[in-house]
Design a protein around this nucleic acid. Structure first.
Length: 466
RNA sequence: GGCGGGAUAGCCAAGUGGUAAGGCAGAGGUCUGCAAAACCUCUAUUCGCGGGUUCGAUUCCCGCUCCCGCCUCCA
């Protein structure tokens, strides 16, 4: 079955076919973070959706070329660096570094490139694009010296969001002082320097200033991936106006269809409420790690609801993820043990199907895919209980799990128990040998206090991380 | 006002014109020195409400209610 995605542009489920004539390479552009602060879990919900997308495409045989931009100049970064008394680059570097740490914590596969907006190469590309737009009448310099895109030159503006611009109701967010523009909807390509910018400025044919947010993505996307991109992702809030603007700028420059498939993920709610600092339910990844949750657990929660649906993040769901992962861990450990040294995999029916991948083919139906996983876990555990599973069967199941885990990245990182804990296990074995149950239980409590759980089985004690 | 998404058990959630996957939580059981894990059984006569089409609708159509998002630089 072919992979299908719900395309925001057409609002229909479309079969995915990459532009590459060989049908192999897939070009993806994803809107990345503005590096003025630590990213919050809502941001990471989007990045995890993109990770799932990339990993599923790769497991389907595609060669994914993904670019994620880093917005390191805008109102917020400028305000932030001034407040911190640091040069802009120094201020944003801290948050770039922490962003990459967070990606690793959540096991998000790094993109092929993470271009920064302030990279001179990209600034030059933005200026080049703006000059092209001005030269072809798609843009103009207003009285305030800023350069704006001339919206009435691009009738398709609004198509992605399915907005009829004539019917837009002013929302109060439009600044009254932007009277210099020909039309209220015209958006800035180049922002003329003003005092609040301080020393943040670049020279351009239109004077000192800085690029607008939208042109940044158009420039870096077309520069690194070419004029035509297969998939462009982001949060639903980016649909309008950001992605509309990207389409307008890019297509007026290249004359080609900028993006073939638009995928947008819904927002995250926390405890059924919109996440906000004032509501006290605003969490960065770091906040959750401090509370004792692991990156793997957070990954599991943020990934387990289809990207198009709002996701209600709760601590109950984190606890649920912890239980589910423990079950997966126990299952993998059991299979590993049963497989032993057996190098050959059998053709066990539980291991020779790709229903997991087929579920994901349907617009990344993660719930269906996880349903398949747990069905397989239960069925194989039952077979293991009955003793009808051979080492070769277990080896085959582990192979199946490897393919599934390549997408999910749920497997526990291998870690050995510290010497002190192993010593306790040994002491407990002696106590059990002597049928000293009281001592055995006491040592078990000590082991647990050290962060490990010991379980007794027919083959002896089994140690797992708590 | 416009546009879009949603409403399925305590919670999360899949799904189909033919009588409700899966996960978490909960109850009972098998196993165990006890636990834990695993497995088994149970937990929605029912899919927001009211009509309609149909032999049959949670699934299609119409109307309604409620929730959420966007409407010019928030993933």
């Amino acid at each position: 079955m072919a992979i299908r995605f719900l395309n925001t542009y057409t609002r229909t489920l479309e079969e995915f076919r990459p532009l590459d004539p060989a049908g192999k390479a897939v070009k993806i552009y994803t809107c990345g973070p503005t590096v003025y602060n630590y990213a919050h879990i809502g941001n990471f919900r989007a990045y995890l959706f993109e990770d799932l997308l990339q990993r599923h495409l790769e497991s389907s045989g595609y060669d994914v070329q993904r670019v994620m931009n880093l917005t390191d100049v805008d109102d917020k970064t400028i305000r932030g660096c001034h407040a911190a008394g640091l040069p802009l680059a120094e201020f944003t570097q801290k948050y770039k570094d922490s962003f990459f740490e967070d990606l690793a914590t959540l096991r998000i596969k790094p993109a092929m490139a993470f271009p920064s907006a302030t990279d001179p190469v990209h600034i030059a590309r933005m200026i080049e694009m703006i000059a092209h737009l001005v030269a072809h009448d798609y843009a103009y310099q207003a009285e305030d010296q800023s350069v704006y895109f001339r919206l009435n030159k691009f009738p398709n503006y609004g198509k992605l969001a399915h907005l009829n611009l004539d019917e837009l109701r002013p929302s109060g967010r439009i600044r009254n002082d932007e009277y210099e523009k020909e039309s209220v909807g015209d958006f800035a390509l180049w922002k003329a320097w003003d005092e609040a910018d301080g020393d943040v400025a670049w020279e351009s044919p239109w004077g000192k200033g800085r690029p607008g947010w939208h042109i940044e993505c158009s420039a870096m996307a077309t520069e690194l991936l070419g004029p035509e991109i297969d998939i462009h992702c982001g949060g639903v809030d980016n649909i309008f106006p950001h992605h509309e603007a990207e389409i307008a700028q890019s297509e007026c420059c290249t004359g080609k269809q900028f993006v073939r498939y638009w995928l947008h993920c819904a927002h995250l709610m926390v405890e059924s409420q919109k996440m906000s600092k004032s509501a006290g339910n605003f969490y960065t990844l770091r906040d959750l790690l401090e509370k004792g949750w692991s990156g793997r657990e957070i990954r599991c929660v943020l990934l387990s609801v289809n990207y198009r649906l709002p996701l209600n993040f709760t601590f109950e769901s984190l606890a649920g993820a912890r239980s589910s992962l423990a079950r997966i861990d126990a299952w993998v450990a059991r299979l590993t043990e049963t497989a032993g040294d057996e190098p050959h995999a059998s053709a066990h029916p539980l291991a020779s199907h790709n229903r997991f991948q087929q579920a994901l083919d349907d617009d990344l139906n993660i719930s269906g895919a996880l349903g398949v996983l747990f069905d397989v876990i239960r069925a194989s555990n039952r077979a293991l209980d009955l003793g009808t599973f051979t080492p070769a069967d277990a080896r085959a199941l582990l192979g199946w799990w490897d393919r599934v885990n390549a997408v999910l990245q749920f497997q526990r990182e291998a870690e050995g128990a510290p010497k002190a804990v192993l010593d306790l296990v040994e002491a407990r074995a002696a106590a059990r040998e002597a049928k000293n149950w009281a001592l055995s239980d006491e040592i078990r409590a000590q082991i647990e206090a050290a962060g490990w759980i010991v379980k007794d089985s027919k083959e002896g004690q089994k140690l797992t991380r708590k």
